[in-house]
Simulated scan of single mutants.
Amino acid sequence: MIFHRFNVALLSFFILAVLVAAPAQAGSHEKGPVKDAIVLAAFGTSYPEALKSILNIRSKVEKAYPGVPVKLAFTSSIIRDIWHERQNDTAWQKENTGVPADILGVKGPLATIADLQDEGYKSIAVQSLHVFAGEEFSDLTQTMIGLRSIRALKAKSTPFKSLRLGRPALGMPGDVYPYTEDIAIAAKALKADVDAAKKMNAALVYMGHGNDFYSTGIYAEFQNAMQKAYNHPVFVACVEGYPSYDDMLETLKASGSKKVLLKPFMIVAGDHASNDMAGDEDDAWKVMLTKAGFDVTIDLTGLGCIDSWADIYVQHLKDATAQTHMLP
C-alpha cells in the first residue's frame, strides 16, 4: 500500500511537470490562427481596497501581452460568493465605486477557462497568483490536468491546443526552475522592505497565510534566504501552520530587536492582514507583539502592490508560455 501511494504521488508530480512545461496538442487539421488568452488565478479578496494588489499584477501582464485578453479568476468559492451577492446590491456599489465589473461576476478558474474556450480561445495560459505551491495551487493543478486530458474523436474537435500553468512566486517542485532560485529572486524583490526596517532600526516580521494540513516549511526557507541576503532580522510566520506566531516570537525575542515593522506576506492586504495582523482584538499580532514589549509599526501593503513582486508573476507566465518541449 505504501509503495502504491508513493507511485501515485510520483506520477502526480510527473504530470504536473508536463503540464507546466508542455502544450496540450490539438489535431493538425486546425484551420486559422489559434486565439490566445491568459487567466490570472488568485485566491481572491472580499476587500475592495485590497483589489489593487491583484489589479496591479493584471496591469503588468496586460502590458507584457498587448492584445491578449487577461481574465481574473478567484480560487476561493467563499470569496466569489461574496462578490456575486454584491452584483445586485446597488446600495453597496454606490458606496464602493471603482470596482471593475468583472470582479462582481468573478468566476473560478474552471468556469473562466470554459468561457474562453467557448469564445474560441484554444491556447490558454493560467498564471497562479499564489505565494507558494500549497493547497490552492494543488487544486488548480488538478483542474488543469483534467482539462488537458480531454480528447475528441476528431482531432480538430479537441477543445484546447495549448494549456499552460505558471508556477507560484516561491516556485514549485521540479528541476526545470529550481524553487530555491525562485526563493532567491523573491527575496531580492523585497529589498525595499528590509531597507525600510533598517531605517527604523526594527526587525521585519511578515504574516503569511499558511495551511493547517499542507507543508508550509517553505516560509522558513524564505525567512532564511532573507536573513542571509540582508544580514538583518527578518521573520516569517503563518496564521495557519509552521512557523507559527509562537515560533516567530521566540526567535524575535532572541534577536534583541525592540521595534518591529509588521507586514503581510500575502498577495492582498485583506481580512487576515486587517484583522488577524493589524486588528485591535487580543489575538491580533499587533496587540500581542505590543504586549510582548515591542514597538510595532504596521504596513498594510499586499505583495501584489510591490512592482518587483508583481514582476515575478509576469516572468513565471513568460516561462510557462515559452516552453515548447516535453520534460524527461
Rank of each mutant, 00 (worst) to 15 (best):
S138E: 08
D311A: 03
S12I: 06
L10K: 15
N56V: 04
I298Y: 09
I306F: 07
G166F: 03
V296Y: 02
S28V: 12
G241C: 04
Q93Y: 10
I2P: 12
H325M: 13
S12L: 13
I124T: 00
L303C: 11
W309Q: 11
I78P: 01
S157I: 01
I79R: 05
G27P: 14
M277W: 03
D283P: 07
V68N: 10
Y179L: 06
N7D: 06
K31N: 05
V70D: 01
I298N: 12
Y313K: 02
L10M: 12
I150C: 09
L289E: 03
S28W: 07
K258L: 00
P109K: 00
V39P: 08
A278D: 02
G120W: 06
V18E: 07
A101G: 03
I298A: 02
A192N: 15
F265G: 09
I185H: 15
R151Q: 13
H272K: 00
Y242G: 00
F235E: 00
V314F: 07
D182V: 09
F294P: 11
V314P: 15
V260A: 10
F13A: 09
K258H: 04
E49P: 02
V70F: 09
P66A: 05
A197E: 03
G293F: 01
K258T: 04
L163R: 13
E49W: 12
V176Y: 11
I185R: 15
A254P: 06
D139A: 13
S76K: 06
D271V: 08
E281H: 13
K191E: 15
V268M: 12
K258E: 10
L140R: 06
G44Q: 09
K156I: 08
L170F: 14
P243M: 08
T321F: 04
R58Y: 01
S274G: 08
L129V: 10
S76R: 06
A64C: 05
C238N: 14
F213T: 13
A189N: 02
A322P: 08
L147M: 15
D182E: 14
F213M: 06
V296G: 04
Q315C: 00
M144P: 15
M248W: 04
Y121I: 01
A269K: 07
F132Y: 15
D247I: 10
L190R: 14
L249P: 03
A292V: 06
K154C: 00
E181H: 11
V176G: 06
T324F: 12
A225W: 04
